[in-house]
Design a protein around this nucleic acid. Sequence first.
DNA 1: TTTTAACCGAGACGGTACGTCACGTCTTGTG
DNA 2: CACAAGACGTGACGTACCGTCTCGGTTAAAA
Lengths: 203, 203, 203, 203
Amino acid sequence: MSITSFIGRPRDHSRDTAIEKAAIELLGEVGYEQITMEAVALRARVSKATIYRRWKNKAELMVNAVQHYALCKCPTVDIGSLRGDLIEVISEKAKSMKSTDGQFIRGLMTAARTDGELGAVLTSSLSDYAGSTYAAIFERAIARGEISDAAKTEIILEIVPAVISFRIFISHQSVNRKFIEHLVDDVIIPTIKHSQGENACLK
Amino acid sequence: MSITSFIGRPRDHSRDTAIEKAAIELLGEVGYEQITMEAVALRARVSKATIYRRWKNKAELMVNAVQHYALCKCPTVDIGSLRGDLIEVISEKAKSMKSTDGQFIRGLMTAARTDGELGAVLTSSLSDYAGSTYAAIFERAIARGEISDAAKTEIILEIVPAVISFRIFISHQSVNRKFIEHLVDDVIIPTIKHSQGENACLK
Amino acid sequence: MSITSFIGRPRDHSRDTAIEKAAIELLGEVGYEQITMEAVALRARVSKATIYRRWKNKAELMVNAVQHYALCKCPTVDIGSLRGDLIEVISEKAKSMKSTDGQFIRGLMTAARTDGELGAVLTSSLSDYAGSTYAAIFERAIARGEISDAAKTEIILEIVPAVISFRIFISHQSVNRKFIEHLVDDVIIPTIKHSQGENACLK
Amino acid sequence: MSITSFIGRPRDHSRDTAIEKAAIELLGEVGYEQITMEAVALRARVSKATIYRRWKNKAELMVNAVQHYALCKCPTVDIGSLRGDLIEVISEKAKSMKSTDGQFIRGLMTAARTDGELGAVLTSSLSDYAGSTYAAIFERAIARGEISDAAKTEIILEIVPAVISFRIFISHQSVNRKFIEHLVDDVIIPTIKHSQGENACLK
DNA sequence: TTTTAACCGAGACGGTACGTCACGTCTTGTG
DNA sequence: CACAAGACGTGACGTACCGTCTCGGTTAAAA
């Protein structure tokens, strides 16, 4: 008398991981549409049928793979000041986005287009991915008294990844130290200060 | 005896337009990678060879098509105040991005991925596309004395399309009136004021 | 303590029959290579493993199934004359071959191709199948004194099924009454008479 | 002003031949269902698409290939007597059927099963193949006066290939000299004589 | 006017990946 | 052990699209 009585040979979930791992690696190496299901299967030491038993096509596989991967990647930095932390973490994100992670975003967008439903699923994973890192920074800034508890920081969580990905994927401009400092000093900080009320200037 | 002397039947440039038109239509209807060169040719009543004589591949065709299309779409608004103009034009852009133009951006991103060189080409076209509209708004605001000549507005040209496209294509959140007002009031205006110097607060 | 002492659950031989029955049915319905082991298993309410525990592959299963099926189908006719009996039984055979049994032959040929060894196995089963019916007819004809004991009838056992299956499966000509009479009157009877010696003509 | 105005690049019919040639060769080498479209394409130095542009599937390709091949293979023998000619040509046919040609027949039957229409097409090709050879033999026998003009030989054209293919493909018995002589002496010759009238015995 | 070379439509072609399907094997839990 | 259920590796299938090519035929500048 078992709780879950299953029937037939159970799926080997280690294969799920192997496949997603292979997919992620290839995504970083060759880019979304250069990826071959054959290649994924080969690298995961798995048959194509086994992949298609789990995901209905390439797009679904890739999105799921990226999701799972993204969820366990939350870099933390602690320079000691809001400005320093922001510049540091944005630099990190930009760097990673330029390399492997960038392929994720591209892959996600392409895949999400095919299946609208994947878009929603994507949202949460990406927000989590981007959000948790910044949230920690703002919390520490509040703790240090740099900014007040009342500061509305949500919009920052949107602006930063948006601007960076736009630069990298669309306008193909470099996201260098100078730009990041400009972004932090002239957009983010003023926005936060403004959100703390008119007296923000008087601080 | 001219510098470029050519012999033979001259290229029919009316076909260029027909092809790009077909490409744009299909982009809006089915999305970048569902587009078939066969389908473009069919709709443009043109042979595939005629397309490939003009563009070296699908990506190039699409990017060029979008460029030409974008350049002739610069909506103008004139509400009478910086805030009003911004809210109005952003609303417009967001609306258009949600429909046909949205496919452009996606198409562009996908296409740009394939050929890095296209990215650069893309940059200018998109900046022009987005930029000219906002530029006019800021100029009028300066003329009205709302903001000083010294205001650094370039970064706004980046933030706005970036944030909007991120919402629409990636996080799939709605870009409604409330959000746009939030963006204008709590990010754009503060950023501009800040760029005018410390005395911005005193105004 | 027996010579072959086995341990564990004994094989359920009722499943052997169920599987062969399913195989035969499907053979008649869809033809040899449209048959799926999955389908056989499903119809026999049996698992694929159970089939493969009994036969080493599809070909073996099918041949065995057909063998067992064939052995229990020996129509008997008794018109009262050699000519009448022959025409009658050939008509019957032809009719059955056109329907279900036809698939058998095709199946057999295909199966036999894969594994040469199956050919031999097949031979006896088919001879038995075809042979026993005709043998009875000739015996009665001998008993009636229509033909002598010395008549060599073996070759007839080969010619009749060969010609009929050739018509049905290869040349796709109809095997009608007229043809059968022609075959009996102008080939079979002369052949038998000839086998009884020179004096056959004198009869 | 041309008689046949065609549109588009014309099919390279040399490829038709190359493909069919490759198919025939492979049929002889590995047998019908071991043949891979990939392998055919490779050997014919052609792409798979080119094959599928001409035939809708493997079966159709193979049948057509065999047809074209069969039509140009009509062995001729001339020993000088009906009996000798028959034994000779049957031996030849049997030998060839056991090797390469045998694969044809098998392939044909398998393929014909899938598409009923192919059966008809097959008929003529096979009759021609088998028929023309025997026809020549009987004509010479008539010319020599061995048999009368009235001899009905059509049924022989059916019996011989039927019996031989039955032996080879179904009952897997050898078609040796002894059997062929038996067939000729005890079936074919008596049948022909019988067809010449009752007085045949008196000759 | 004739030549000439590029243009054009149509579609064949080589290539490559796709997603599907069936075979025969294997791995579970249960009887 | 047998058995049901079904995952798994393998390998062929037939399809789709890309970008190239090869035809017959057209078109306008050059000769």
